[in-house]
Amino acid sequence: MNERNEQGHVEVRDLRLRFGSRRRQVLAVDGVSLDVRPGEFVSLIGPSGCGKSTLLNVVAGLVEATEGSVSLDGIPIDGPGPERGVVFQQYSLFPWMSVRRNVEFGLKMQGHGASTREAAARTLLGLAGLLAFENHYPEQLSGGMKQRVGIVRALAASPKVLLMDEPFGALDSQTRRVMQQILTNMWQRFRLSVLFVTHDIEEAAFLSDRVYVMTARPGRIKAVVDVQLPRPRSSADMMSEGFLDLVRTLRAHIQDESLAAMHGELADHGLEGFGVDVGPSGVKDLV
C-alpha cells in the first residue's frame, strides 16, 4: 500500500466551467486551481450552488471542463476511470446486486476472476464491519451502512484518489459523526488522496489536511486553510481550542458567501430581519 503514497496527485489549473446554451450561459466555476497531493485529505467547502460538486465531477471525468486543465499524476483527465474512485451524494449502489456483488463490481470491470473478487470484497467489507451483510441487498441497509458500502465499493477498485461528494449529507447528525470517524480511520489505514466536498464546516475541519473555501457562484477559491491538528483524530478533538479556532476561521470565510448566495431571498439586512419583535402571539400576527 506504500507505493500509493507516491501517487494520486490531483492538479486543477485555472478551471473554468460554463453551462447552458450560447444565449443563456452561466459561469459556474471561474479560474479555480487546487492540488490534492499524494496521501492528502483535502476538503472543498462553499455555499450551495457554488459549483463544488461540479468541480468534483470534472475530476471524476463525468463533466468536461470548459477551460483549464485537470490531471492525475500528470496525466490529463479524459472521462471517468477506476483510478479515481467516487462516492456519490445519493446512494448509488446497484439495487439488484447484493452488497458483496456491489463491492466486486469495479474488480469485475478490471477483469479479475470470481475468487479474487470475492476474497478482496470480503476483506474490505470486514474492515468496514459489513461482512455480516455481504448477502443483503442495499434496500435492506440503513443510510449509514449504504454509504459505507459505497466507500468500500470505491476502494475495492484500488483507486489512487477518492472523490467524495457530500457523502454524509443525507445522514442524521449522530450517524454522520460515526461515519466521519470511520472514514478518518480508513483513510489513516489506506493513506490515499481524498478530495472531499461538503458544506459542513466541522466535517471539513475534522477530516482534512487542507480546506479550500469557495465563493458563491461563480465559484472561485476564496481561501485555503491548512489544518495543523494532530492525527489520529477522534471526536473528542472536536472540543479542543485549536479545532474551535479553525471552525471559527472557516465560518467567517463562508458566512459572507452564504449570504451572497442567498442574496435574492434575504436582502442586505436579512439576518437582522429575524430579530423583528412579532408580539405576544408570535408568528400569527404576521400572517
Binding site: 471524476a60 476511470g81 467516487v86 456519490f88 448509488s92 446497484f94 469495479g106 470491470m109
Partner: peptide
C-alpha cells in the same frame, strides 16, 4: 435508469 447508477458504473471502470 437512474443516471447516478450509470455514473457510478463508469467511475468504476465500466465501458
Amino acid at each position: 435508469t437512474p443516471s447516478a447508477l450509470i455514473n457510478a458504473a463508469r467511475t468504476l471502470g465500466a465501458k
